[in-house]
Write a protein that binds this DNA or RNA. Sequence first.
DNA 1: CTTGCCGGGAA
DNA 2: TTCCCGGCAAG
Length: 515
Amino acid sequence: MASVLSRRLGKRSLLGARVLGPVASDGPLGAGLPLEPQAELPEGSTLQPVLTCKDSGRSLEQPQELLQALGPAGFQQVAFQPGQKVCVWYGGRECTGLVEQHSWAEDKVTVWLLDQKLQICCKAEEAWLAELQGAVPQALSPERGAQAPAYRPVSRNIDVPKRKSDAVEMDEMMAAMVLTSLSCSPVIQSPPGAEASFSASRVACSDPWKESGDVSDSGSSTTSGHWSGSSGISTPSPPHPQASPKYLGDAFGSPQTDHGFETDPDPFLLDEPAPRKRKNSVKVVYKCLWPSCGKVLRSIVGIKRHVKALHLGDSVDSDQFKREEDFYYTEVQMKEDPPAAAAGTSAPGTHIIEPAPAAQVTSPSLAALPLPPPRAQCSGSKHPGPESSLASAALSKSAPSSFWHIQADHAYQALPSLQIPVSPHIYTSISWAAAPAAASPLSPVRSRSLSFSEPQQPPPAVKSHLIVTSPPRAQSSTRKARGEAKKCRKVYGIEHRDQWCTACRWKKACQRFLD
DNA sequence: CTTGCCGGGAA
DNA sequence: TTCCCGGCAAG
């Protein structure tokens, strides 16, 4: 039965709004990058809106109309070079910053905002070269005065109908979901759907998180982070030989596990209703997370050595970097059977955040879970550079978990597909969530839980109070202790029973507001 | 008393 | 399965 959620997601998939048009390639530089035929996206893919950190939470509100208005003319195809000074629309105003990196694949630019002292990640079109500002081709000028805050970024959206309120709502939902997941765990990375391969490049969306962090009990979350489907199109990673050791760019796209917390013998921390175990044979490999490395090795030692030698290099000696290599690789579990799945799992093109609904969830390819290294995040929000991007990537990576949560909403009804791969790692995520204190005092975001104060607004899809708070508990046998989290009934009220999660409606353990 | 949800049962 | 609800336990 189509859960409400999936139904909704399906309908309002973000993807629709992000169709990449040929226009994108007409830019001076755009030509260099082959764009994927948008047409490829099957209906199904709609279910996999890729969450992308779109600017910082603020730009969220950018009027779609603007985007529309700009049209192709406004499109600015520029290849940003690291270090280049650019302007981006952030926090309601134009900010200048330095390009951290520009990922063509994703069409994302990571910018280090000078005045904000933070790093954001936005779509390439949303940034423009500072120097060009004045010199921007006439095409742009009329719309945007030097100061006009006109939101430059023209999306390449084309034939997409104006985003309607519900679309927006959707975005908000997504944002909330993502935030939600962030606040708890970097857990699951749903495996990239076979057909939906996403370009890898790390999408650094670090700081925005901080901002969105304020999404706590206030329910103000709605405006914080804006996630939009990334042009899933960008780089449909060509079918990669799954075993290929080299995964371009996508250092984070693949599932990972944090070794730091792996020791717990009890793989199942049931927070979720009867998670089923993974049923297939899984091959474990270790993948280097260093941006644009992605080397995959089969032994821990090997990967450590690799990281240390190739990436950490001399810094290894410093105290700070002691054992750092541990954080730059991840355990990837590859399912062996389904070839497609395997490919998906390890495919470089994996986009980090892709809350693909049902489609993905059910995908058999789910095999591994990502677990961003704890410390990554601390560096993420404060320091630019590879590390930060890594961190942010890690963060964004957690997004997928949101997906998982979403599903969790309906887990009651549809446990099987989703939970299988996931459950074994729940633990990990938890530890991760719990550990941040040590790892990153900087990110307050993590530990908080969300809850909606607005009954109407949160679509069932949004999860809050996830696993986060649940401490690794061993006793899941007895009656579930009453959680302190607000439940659907509280949040929505009996009047809006229809908005409750299914479980609540059925008087079962709430799946939406887990405690 | 209210709320969360388990256990069980009807559809 | 999906959906409902009696009834227990926690608060």
